[in-house]
Design a protein around this nucleic acid. Sequence first.
DNA 1: CTAACACTGTTAATTATTTCACAATTTTCT
DNA 2: AGAAAATTGTGAAATAATTAACAGTGTTAG
Lengths: 208, 208
Amino acid sequence: MKHIPHKTIERLSQYRRALLLCLSKGKDHIFSHEIAKIQHITPVQVRRDLMLIGYTGTLRKGYKIQELIELIGEIIDSKEGQKVAIVGIGNLGRAIIKYFKNKRPKLAIVAAFDSDPKKIGKKFSGVTCYNISDMPKEIKNQNITIAIMTVPDDRTIEIADLLVKSGIKGILNFTPRPINVPDNVFLEEYDMTTSIEKVAFYVKDVQA
Amino acid sequence: MKHIPHKTIERLSQYRRALLLCLSKGKDHIFSHEIAKIQHITPVQVRRDLMLIGYTGTLRKGYKIQELIELIGEIIDSKEGQKVAIVGIGNLGRAIIKYFKNKRPKLAIVAAFDSDPKKIGKKFSGVTCYNISDMPKEIKNQNITIAIMTVPDDRTIEIADLLVKSGIKGILNFTPRPINVPDNVFLEEYDMTTSIEKVAFYVKDVQA
DNA sequence: CTAACACTGTTAATTATTTCACAATTTTCT
DNA sequence: AGAAAATTGTGAAATAATTAACAGTGTTAG
């Protein structure tokens, strides 16, 4: 398989979610223009993405939803599944755990970390919270490869460094502080403030 | 001023945050390569972004932090400020309110909405929660232009429609359900699951 | 049976974004 | 003062992502 663009990977994840929903409504085939409509993109884009993963629909029938879901799974999931930790059990951390609970079978949140003694040892939506200082140990023991950071701004760097030292393979950083990781750690950063400010910018323009 | 790319707008927001932090540490000038380092991008990218907004640094001194912050503010903030509502007071909604509290003077969260009677009338980090059915009234009365949606998946569409009917100008949708809005409403969607799956995908690759 | 239609798959063109390469200029050093 | 170093600003090139255009092919309708 050729190289798949980042953007396509993101869309595949979204297609899958949309498809699962369609499937649950009893639909069994879907056209590129239907997917496109749901995702606010063009049908060509959908067809191109599917082309990249080598999926072929049926002329005038569209794509077989069940099959496509499975193929996307083969592309983006790992066979054995991956273990995820949430670092920082504030409102955001709890929101993510709760939302993710049993959503993706191949991506299990198996641990939470915080440094508040009141939280350590407790369970949040079924996930045990450990002390941040135990991260190296737990990450190794439980074979956790992905960390989601929702810690207070001013502890971001320090905790990211500890994650890297613990051998984490990928980090999703929700704090507004960019972090540095070595090349062999995949980093994705998302900053809500930026999104809000972006909306504000374009709304301002519309008003003018 | 020429057209500013979406990506540049996002980076400007991030530069500003980084710059504020530098300023608070007593720094007064900064080089493009320093900003670049913080944001994990190239110095050229920084210089080009600043070029686009017409800011000119001093050769061998770099950029004046205070000035640059102000200029970015002129570009991305609206003069009078804008009012924001959070729709859906789950963990995520609360996280956003709490985080945003007094962060951006030009973007005030002035209302929250939920349909849980236990939440209506209460304050969350100082923001009053109204009944969702009162959205049209409150959005008009308080002149709210931006809504952040953190509602349960299955109510997303319905609530988005109500927001549009209420005359909202921009929506930031954090639910995993894409929504449809007319052209005169700016829409930004962010889906955490996608980010997590993306990290998982690239981590899987690294392992292989 | 033929024509019109409705889709997919893909090459080519276009647009958006990033990076390269370097001239210009100030500062520092000798 | 002159040479070396550091840094900005930007045109041009490269890369990435999207869209257009259309050939191919079942399907439906007459």
